[in-house]
Design a binder for these strands. Structure first.
Lengths: 251, 251
DNA sequence: CGAGATGTTGAGACATGTCAAAGCCAGTGG
DNA sequence: CCACTGGCTTTGACATGTCTCAACATCTCG
C-alpha cells in the first residue's frame, strides 16, 4: 500500500506529474484497477481519459446536492468531504466523512438522483468519473466492475455498522479507531489524528449530542486512553480502545 | 407491476410452469432484466441456466452463515428471510427482512465472506445465483450489471435510513409503512399486514426493546392509527402514520 | 391440560439529551 | 496591541425517552 515509483498510474490532461499525484493514485479506491497488469490496454486508456480533475473547492462548498440528477461519482484527491441528509424538519444527519482515495456518490444510482449533499470540510480536490461512461467501461473491463461492486458492498456493510445500537463509548472508540486505520493506510500517523470536523459533526455522525462527545472524550482522557488537544487526538492505548469498540468493529 | 400472462419469464429445470412462478418473476428484483426485450438472447439463456431453485427451507434454517465464503446471492421466492449479525458479546442485530422477489447476500462481496447470517422465518424457497457466473454475465449483459448496481445502491440508502437517530414512534411508523409498500408491490393488501416475525425481531431490527415496541403499538392503537390483533396489523390511518414517519422516509 | 414460547404491563433506573452559562480561540477592526 | 465578535467547546444541572427487570397474560402445540 505504500507509494512506489515506476508503477502504472492515472495520467490526465491536468496531471502535473509530481509525486503527490502518484501517491494519491496508489491509495485511491480505484487505484488497483490501474496498477494491475493484464487488462485490455485500450480500455485502460479510456478510463484515464474519463477522469476529470476538478478545481479546488473551499470549505463549505458542495460537490453535489440532494436531489440533483446522478451523473458522476467522485474520488477525493485532497482534503476531507462529508455527506449529509437534511430531513423534513431541517435536521442534518451526517452519513460519512471521506478521506483522499475514497469514493462518494455511489448511493445516487438507485434513484438516479443524489440522496444526500456532499460538502467540503476544507480545501478539496476531486477526480470526477462520469457514471454512464464508467458503467459502459465496466462491461469491457471486469476489474472496474468488480471494484465498483466491492466498493458498494463495503458501503452497505459500513452503513449497517452505524445502524447498530451501541453506547456512546463504543461509538466514539470505533470512530477513532476507524479514522486511525484510514489515516494509517494513507501514510499518516495511526496514533496522532487531526480531526478536521467540528465536534458537532462527529456527534451528529455518531447520532449523539455534541455535549456527549465532549464528555466521553474527556472521560477517555481521564482514563488514559487518549490525549485531546483541540482537534488533535493522540491515541495512547489503541488496545483498550479496540476492546471498547470490539462489538462495533466485529473483531 | 401486476402479474401479466404471456411475458418472458425465467424458465428453469425445476419450473412446474404454474402461474405462481410466473407471478414471482415479474416482481423479482431481477425480473425486469428478463422482461425487457432487446438483449442478447444467448446471454439471457445463460442467466436462466445459472439460476438454481433451492429446496424449501424451514423456519430457523440458515441460507448462509456469517463467515462462509461468499459464493452466491439469493432471491427469495416464497416466505420471509431475516439477516442478522451476532456481535462479540453474542447480541443479535437484525439487519433486514426480505420478501419474495428481494435479494440477499450482496453485502458478502466486499470481504468475499458473508458478513451476516440469513435465516428463514417460515418455509422459504429461493433462487440461487452463483456470483462468479453472474458477474461474468454482467459484463456481457449491461442490464444485469445495471440492476446489480442499482440494487446495491438501494441497500446503501436503506441501511442509512435505519442509522438515523429517530424516536421509537418514527421508527415503528416507518417500519409499518415500508412493509405496507412492499406487500402492496407484491399484490397483497397495503392496509392489512401479517407480521411473520416475533415482536422481539421487530424490536431488534429497529434497535428498540421489545417492551417499547409493544407499548408503541398499543399507543398507536389507542390513537386510532392501527388495529393490532396478534401479528395482524390493520393500518387505519396510513396518512397519519406517514406524517409520523415523514422524517425517516424522507418525503 | 401443562409447558414453553411469546406478548403485555407497570415501576423504577439510567444513559443520553436539553438548556444555559461560561471559557476559549481566531480573526477583525480600531 | 487591545478589545470585540462569533464560532466552537466544555461544564453543570436537570429532563426525559427508552431500557431493564419482574410479574403476569396469552397463545401454541404436544
Amino acid at each position: 500500500m505504500s507509494p512506489q515509483g515506476g508503477v502504472l498510474r492515472w495520467p490526465s490532461p491536468q496531471d502535473q506529474g509530481d509525486g503527490d499525484i502518484q501517491r494519491f493514485c496508489t491509495t485511491c479506491a480505484f487505484g488497483r484497477v490501474c496498477l494491475t497488469d493484464g487488462y485490455d490496454k485500450r480500455a485502460l486508456e479510456d478510463l484515464h481519459c474519463l477522469v476529470e480533475h476538478t478545481a479546488p473547492m473551499h470549505a463549505g462548498e458542495e460537490v453535489f446536492r440532494h436531489g440533483e440528477p446522478f451523473a458522476a461519482i467522485y474520488a477525493v484527491r485532497a482534503g476531507m468531504v462529508k455527506t449529509r441528509r437534511i430531513d423534513e424538519q431541517g435536521r442534518e444527519q451526517i452519513l460519512g466523512f471521506f478521506l483522499p482515495g475514497e469514493l462518494i456518490g455511489l448511493n445516487g444510482l438507485y434513484t438516479a438522483r443524489y440522496p444526500c449533499d456532499a460538502v467540503a470540510l476544507d480545501t478539496v480536490t476531486l477526480c470526477r468519473f462520469s457514471f454512464p461512461q464508467l458503467s459502459v467501461l465496466a462491461t469491457r473491463l471486469p476489474g472496474i466492475q468488480e471494484t465498483l461492486f466491492r466498493l458498494m458492498s463495503k458501503d452497505i456493510v459500513n452503513a449497517a455498522l452505524l445502524g447498530g445500537d451501541y453506547s456512546a463509548d463504543e461509538r466514539l472508540a470505533a470512530f477513532l479507531l476507524n479514522l486511525s486505520d484510514r489515516f494509517a493506510e494513507r501514510g499518516y500517523s495511526a496514533t496522532r489524528l487531526h480531526l478536521m470536523m467540528p465536534r458537532s459533526d462527529i456527534a451528529n455522525y455518531l447520532r449523539l449530542a455534541p455535549e456527549t462527545v465532549s464528555r466521553v472524550l474527556r472521560r477517555f482522557q481521564d482514563d488514559g486512553l487518549i490525549e485531546v488537544d483541540k482537534r488533535e487526538v493522540h491515541l495512547r492505548s489503541p488496545e483498550r480502545l479496540k476492546h471498547l469498540a470490539r462489538c462495533v468493529l466485529q473483531q
